[in-house]
Design a protein around this nucleic acid. Sequence first.
DNA 1: ATCACAATACTTTTT
DNA 2: GTATTGTGAT
Length: 728
Amino acid sequence: MKLLEDLNSQQREAVTISPGPVLVLAGPGSGKTRVLAHRIAYLVDHFGVQPREIMAMTFTNRAAREMAGRVEQLLGKADALHPVSKGGVSLGTFHALCARLLRRESDLLPFSREFVIFNESDQHTLVRQALKEINLDPKQVQPGKVHGIISRAKNELIELEAFEADTYFAEIARRVYQRYQQLLLRNNALDFDDLLLWAVRLFQEHDDLLAKYRRRYPHILVDEFQDTNTAQYVLLRLLAGEEPDLFVVGDPDQSIYRWRGADYRNVHRFKEEYPQVKVILLEQNYRSTQTILDAAMAIIDRNLGRQQKRLFTDRGTGVRITFEEAYNENDEARLVIETIASLTYSGQVEPGGCAVMYRTNTQSRALEEAFLKAGLPYRLVGAQRFYGRREIKDLIAYLRLIHNPADQVGLLRVLNTPPRGIGAKTVQTLLQTASQAELDPAEVLLDLAEGDRSQFADGFTHRAGAALTGFGRALQGWIKVGNELPLISLIDRVLEETGYREYIDDGTEEGQDRWANILELRGVAQEYQEMGLTIFLEHVALVSDQDTLTDSQNAPTLLTLHAAKGLEFPVVFIIGLDDGVLPHRRSFDDPEAMAEERRLFYVGITRAQDRLILLRAFRRRQAGVSSLSEPSRFVEDLPPDLVDGNLATHQTWDQASYQRQTRWDKELTQPIEARYQVGMRVHHPTFGEGIVTATEIDLDDEVVTVAFEGDETRHLAASLAGLTILDE
DNA sequence: ATCACAATACTTTTT
DNA sequence: GTATTGTGAT
């Protein structure tokens, strides 16, 4: 059968096993995603299962997309992220699937179908508000910490009544928990944990509904099972019932989300609760050289209480791993770029085959700067920072408010953004008026928009009333057209009527960047035209790992070690191998956390197919202060015979191209002459044609600013960018 | 009362 | 590099 070609015997066994509880323990690079996709196809093809009877859960949208693509290829149809429609396979993240479920069944729940999903900063705002309401200073009690405790409780399905407060801080958390949940409901909002929690509750409290879904989805598959938390596990158990076809795939050594409530002991629990489970091991690695696998095993073997695995490959020994120490994080970034350049010039790898991994997001800064300075493109995974930008949050807050006027957090964000004469005092009065009338603040605004007929007009000073009424009218208008107007038109109308561009784009470079971000979000919205506001907002809330934002095709990828799970690259850099960074200092005093840091390093190592380059910096700037650091304690666990202490690639570099292509190793030289002029047409190998809009001599190089076709403006170092002058 | 700017403190990992 | 808070000018 065609489906089974190219599978080894272990993989084939997993794919063809008869339905029932199955646990696939898969090592890194063993083709588990493939096995999952083939299993889905085999269920349909061989066991006669309808695709619509299959539900497959992943942890990231990326994994869902990838699996959808594979299944589609094998089967000709897969309806990713659309759990209950069109007859395809229901495929998506736990959170996305739950969000859809809750919207469908909202009649049974204490919030409406239009609920919004609060992101981290909204959650913090709410905790802050709750703290204030119980007369605690958000400055003395960190909102993030309190929310962490609440979040953990929710992931453990510990509801308020069962929340035990055995310390002072826990008692604070308990009180905040109570207020926080009330506030969420009042905002008609859910946080990430709620999506799972309410789904579990829904099934626990409505047997008929559970029975319906069990009938509807007799076949369930789960990827990255080691990263399920209690809520997810219970949800799976509920859906699966006592004699399920439940096919789970995981690797306890790659469990890296303990801090988020993930519990790899769910693997053991699964075995105990389903004694008839069939366990299949996938041991052969198809990804990495033996050198890389040996290094990975040396690292992970130090963790206690795990089942030892032998990772093997027939890919051969491969080249040695390199480890080098840079002076500081800028020097580290420089080394990354130089190494990528040299490997690329010598034809060993495409730029797009390289990935740079780090422990914390802040480490991407130095890298980005270096890439920008060198005029080289890169792909940054983790749109988090994009969606964290002020202007993006503003626009999303507007849309959320239109979709769900109960969203107070969104309202308070945009009420006076751009400034429209609604200050702190007026906001205060508005909130008071609303709470006295037992209405949402937005309802008061909408009432004010009615003009003379408004019952609230007298409550405000003339000026404040006018400002609020003005905003109320605008909001009223948007809500009215919100469902009819295409998404883009709605966005344009909001931007237009608020004068947002004038507010944000003050002509400075920063202002232009911010406006460009707005346009980028507008571009994302364009893809959601038909699906509408609800789906768009859900996407924005649940998709933070999407990498479509920087679309340079053949460029190195920058990502955290966490984001790297499930990916592979010919060349992998792991930077910041300093004690305190990896392992992170916050994990030092907790052995379980240290074990997880080690697994994180293991995950990073096993992403590499051919070449692994480890870097660290002697001096590192953190939180604004520069301090010295020691090499990571993990480094000494690497077998010395697999590692070159000095980056061996240095010696194979072609000196001529190296010097032409890099500038950092040279001393300051005398100023050079400008070769470019404003107005010139130029061509860039990656960005295409453009016009020079500015040029400046910086040290020994010329920095050219070019506006490329397609509205992209770049600062490029002339000596590196490879620009050709087309005409002057 | 509102707004612009400065000063301040914090920054692990993510759905 | 951001969110919150404080200050003085309007």
